[in-house]
């Protein structure tokens, strides 16, 4: 049984425009994704495709002007708001995306220590700082005194000391030097091997491939494909969705050909397949309805023409 299942998740925002008019932005549309214990799922996709919001939705910390539908299940049971509150920080931990997530007026050591749910907090904090090469005086510093890399390592530390079963890491690596990246990724692998489930949101497909088991590709607020890492090779011929293939080929180490066009704005999504305006294989059928997510060759895809 999957430890975390997200089914048909949709999130939209009410936005006010000039003259007090309201507008709905559909930032996530019928998204499905599952997370297994002992596994690392990497989530990749363009900026603004809804990766951070998915993480926040799982933890139940969406902003108040967001409305959400669909179900999220944790260990088989639906994750209600009350359960989310009980599990946050204990069983599900977040590594947030940016340094702004640290309280500017609180010493970072104290912020890490609050994440420790059992045992000697001070000891755990010191150990994890040591592991990430943070000097002992760092614990008495305020966030503004940290370099970008130090702050990242502090954020990583908060999740590592929490001993949670599910770790959702939202782009934990940018700004770190390669050695620390390797160490962090290695830590995630180790956590997974010890039975944790890790969702690794990242732009860095290259690194993700080294440690992840599966990769979920996001586009315009939905999962277009979930594929085992082994499918990412060559020209992407094993990949299922046209967007995944294009994304793969756009990488510098591959063909380095940019995808034409751009992701649709959440307020103006196409009626049919979300990728339709940019897809090379588009047909009339694609414009009629949103393709369902379906199983295909040991993976999943949201494209009617995928083989």
């Amino acid at each position: 049984m999957s430890i975390l299942e997200v089914e048909d998740l949709s999130i939209s925002f009410k936005q006010y425009t000039r003259g007090l008019k309201q507008k709905h932005h559909h930032v996530i549309t019928s998204l499905n994704v599952t997370l297994e214990a002992g596994e690392i799922l990497a989530v990749v996709g363009a900026s603004g495709s809804g990766k951070s919001l998915l993480a926040h939705a799982i933890l139940g910390i969406l902003p108040s002007n967001a409305s959400m539908s669909g179900t999220i299940k944790y260990a088989g049971d639906e994750l209600t708001a009350a359960r989310q509150m009980a599990l946050r920080g204990k069983e599900i931990a977040l590594v947030p995306q940016s340094v702004n997530y640290l309280d500017p007026l609180m010493r970072v050591g104290a912020q890490v220590r609050t994440s420790v749910k059992q045992g000697d907090a001070a000891l755990a904090q010191r150990k994890v700082f040591e592991r990430y090469h943070l000097q002992s005086d760092v614990e008495n510093m305020y966030p503004f005194q940290l370099s970008g890399g130090m702050a990242r390592r502090t954020l990583l530390s908060t999740a590592m000391v929490s001993e949670a079963n599910v770790i959702i890491a939202d782009e934990p690596t940018p700004g770190l030097d390669p050695v620390v990246i390797l160490e962090a990724l290695h830590d995630f692998r180790e956590l997974a091997d010890n039975g944790c489930a890790v969702m690794l949101i990242t732009h860095d497909i290259e690194s993700a491939l080294k440690i992840a088991d599966k990769i979920a590709v996001f586009y315009a607020g939905t999962t277009v494909e979930v594929a085992p890492v082994d499918d990412f090779f060559g020209n992407g011929e094993a990949l299922r969705h046209p967007y995944s293939k294009a994304l793969w080929r756009a990488l510098p180490q591959n063909d380095f050909v940019p995808i034409r066009g751009s992701q649709p704005h959440p307020s103006a999504l196409p009626a049919g397949c979300l990728f339709e305006p940019r897809c090379e294989k588009v047909t009339l059928e694609c414009r009629q309805a949103r393709p369902e997510m379906r199983n295909l060759r040991n993976g999943m895809v949201r494209c009617i023409h995928a083989t």
């Binding site: 920080g89 931990a93 977040l94 947030p96 997530y101 640290l102 309280d103 609050t114 908060t158 929490s162």
Partner: peptide, 13 residues
């Protein structure tokens, strides 16, 4: 509404 309160909530506060 700040990110750091969001993160504090994410940690169960």
């Amino acid at each position: 509404a700040s990110d750091y309160v969001l993160f504090a909530r994410a940690r169960g506060e």
